[in-house]
Lab assay of single mutants.
Amino acid sequence: GLTEEQKQEIREAFDLFDTDGSGTIDAKELKVAMRALGFEPKKEEIKKMISEIDKDGSGTIDFEEFLTMMTA
């Protein structure tokens, strides 16, 4: 499992990506986040990433899903 410290770091990354503070990361926010990390993702790639992570089919990534992605 994760230490509380690791969870906190992932939470901070999540909050950075969640620019509108909605508690979820949408495609637009993910794209901005990827760019910040030096990637140039295409729209299809973003969609694919979200569909792989987005277990509940909401079209957005919540913290639990993000946590799973970061620790996979």
Rank of each mutant, 00 (worst) to 15 (best):
A27I: 14
F14K: 00
P41R: 03
D26G: 07
E4M: 08
Q8L: 09
A72V: 09
K42G: 14
A36H: 14
T24N: 05
G1A: 09
M69D: 01
M70P: 01
L37S: 03
S22G: 04
E52C: 15
A13P: 00
D54N: 10
K28P: 04
T19S: 11
E65K: 11
D62V: 04
T3W: 04
G57C: 12
E44G: 14
K28Y: 09
P41G: 14
K48V: 05
D54K: 12
I50R: 01
E65R: 11
P41K: 06
T71V: 12
S58A: 07
I10P: 01
T60I: 05
F39D: 03
T68L: 13
D20T: 08
S58N: 13
S51N: 10
E9A: 13
D54Y: 08
L67C: 04
E29N: 13
D20G: 03
I53H: 13
M69N: 02
T60P: 03
M34G: 01
F39T: 02
L37T: 04
F14I: 01
T71L: 09
K42I: 11
G23C: 06
K55T: 09
K47A: 12
V32R: 15
Q8I: 08
M49V: 07
L30N: 00
K48F: 04
K43A: 15
T68Q: 15
E12V: 10
K43R: 05
E44L: 07
E64Y: 08
I46H: 03
I10M: 13
A13N: 03
K42D: 15
I50L: 15
I25W: 02
M49H: 04
I53R: 04
I61V: 05
E52P: 02
E44P: 08
G57Q: 10
F63T: 00
D62A: 06
S51A: 12
S22E: 02
Q8F: 07
K31N: 11
T24G: 07
E5F: 10
K48E: 10
L16A: 09
F39L: 10
G59H: 06
I10Q: 02
D62Q: 05
L16I: 09
E44T: 06
R35S: 10
S22H: 03
E29P: 00
L2W: 12
M69L: 12
K31S: 11
G1E: 12
E64V: 05
E64T: 09
D18T: 03
G57R: 06
F66G: 00
F14N: 01
D15T: 09
S58R: 08
T60E: 10
K48S: 07
A36E: 09
K55R: 08
F63G: 00
D62H: 07
L2I: 07
G59S: 07
F17N: 02
E29G: 07
E52V: 12
I53N: 06
T3Q: 03
T68D: 12
R35Y: 04
F17L: 11
T24F: 13
I25H: 00
I10V: 06
T60V: 11
M70Q: 01
K31A: 13
I46V: 07
A72G: 08
F66E: 00
D15C: 08
K7D: 03
E40D: 15
T60C: 08
I50Q: 03
L16P: 01
R35D: 09
M49G: 02
E12D: 13
A36W: 13
M70T: 02
T68Y: 10
M69I: 13
A36F: 12
A27C: 10
E44A: 07
I61R: 00
G1N: 08
D56F: 08
A33G: 06
A72F: 09
A27D: 05
F39H: 09
K42H: 12
G57Y: 08
G23Q: 03
T19L: 08
L2Q: 03
K42Y: 07
A36P: 00
D18E: 01
A13W: 15
M49I: 14
A72Y: 07
S58V: 07
K31H: 13
E9V: 14
S22I: 02
G59T: 06
T60K: 12
F17G: 12
G59D: 06
T68G: 11
F14V: 00
A33I: 15
L16C: 14
G21Q: 07
M70G: 01
E40Y: 15
R35F: 02
K42L: 13
I53G: 05
Q6C: 14
A13C: 15
I61N: 00
R35L: 08
T19H: 13
L2P: 05
K31Y: 15
K7F: 13
L16Q: 08
D26R: 06
A72N: 08
M34H: 01
I10H: 04
G1V: 12
L67I: 07
D54L: 14
V32D: 15
D20R: 04
K28H: 12
P41T: 12
D20F: 04
T24Y: 13
K7W: 10
G23T: 03
I10S: 02
E64C: 09
D26K: 09
T3M: 05
D26E: 09
Q6E: 08
K47M: 14
Q6V: 07
K28E: 15
G57D: 07
S51F: 04
M49P: 02
I25M: 05
L16H: 07
E29I: 10
